[in-house]
């Protein structure tokens, strides 16, 4: 093989490369599509989980919608306050104050605590288990513990511990996927600061409620009497805390005979 052949090949391929390179550069200039640089910056500032909680198919579409002015800057719940203020800055709006929220499970009825109505076996989804004879637990609103919320969580924040869904508040981004998935609507989005919560959704009369779970709210109203701030009220045999009025004094936690009210992280 002569040296010429090698040089010839290099020259041809190199020449082709340079030629196409020039063509591409030209095409880039001629067919240039202007991109709003704000879209890129918004895209970088959001959480980037493509979770869909904002109502758009993904973060790219959300970023475009924000720049078009269609989506609110507070739309990215997983991004929280940081993303909201960054987006407000990019869009030239006043800084917005977003109260950080977190999903909390309003049930403590794990294995042995909420009493079984029957033993469920078979297809492991909470929704299916709940469609049979009022669900496998005596309490009609107990955590079934088959992990529908765990499977739907994209942030690995939910674990099933002893047949009860437990949310890690550090990992939870309040995207709300688990809230719509739970067949008993046990998971609620609450302000992160509201650490005192009634962890029960049982609206049964006192007697069956007492029988169905060790930690069921029986509607005894002791918490109502203990609260100095008019922040807790019992309706339909279930205590509800008004987060606006609650001062986290924990007086209700101390008097609850069933330990239904707890202090979370």
């Amino acid at each position: 093989m002569s040296t010429n052949a090698i040089l010839y090949a290099i020259a041809v391929l190199g020449g082709l490369g340079i030629g196409f390179g020039l063509l591409l550069t030209l095409a880039d200039k001629v067919f240039y599509v202007p991109v709003d640089e704000r879209v890129v910056r918004v895209r970088e500032a959001v959480a980037g989980a493509n979770c869909g909680v904002c109502g758009y198919p993904g973060c790219d579409q959300f970023a475009e919608a924000v720049v078009r002015g269609e989506a609110p800057v507070t739309g990215c719940t997983p991004g929280g306050g940081a993303s909201a203020s960054a987006l407000a800055e990019i869009m030239g709006l006043d800084n917005v104050d977003v109260e950080p929220t977190v999903a909390r499970v309003r049930c403590q009825g794990g294995d042995g605590i909420a009493k079984d109505s029957f033993q469920y076996q078979g297809f492991k989804t909470c929704r299916h288990a709940m469609s049979l004879s009022g669900g496998p637990k005596l309490c009609p609103t107990a955590c079934v513990g088959l992990g529908d919320c765990e499977r739907v969580c994209q942030f690995d924040a939910i674990r099933m511990v002893n047949g009860l869904s437990v949310i890690d508040p550090d990992k939870c981004t309040a995207c709300g996927a688990c809230i719509t998935e739970c067949p008993n609507s046990l998971i609620k989005l609450l302000p992160r600061a509201a650490t005192v919560t009634v962890r029960c959704m049982n609206t049964q009369a006192p007697k069956p409620a007492n029988l169905s779970c060790d930690h069921a709210c029986i509607g005894c109203k002791r918490c109502e009497k203990a609260c100095e701030y008019d922040a807790i009220h019992v309706t339909n045999f279930l205590a509800e805390i008004d987060v606006e009025k609650c001062t986290l004094c924990e007086a209700c936690v101390a008097v609850c005979p069933k330990q239904s009210i707890t202090v979370s992280k």
Binding site: S117, M130, S131, L132, S133, G134, P140
Partner: peptide, 8 residues
């Protein structure tokens, strides 16, 4: 009473 339906 709780029968075979979803609700009592």
């Amino acid at each position: 009473y709780q029968m075979m339906h979803k609700k009592p």
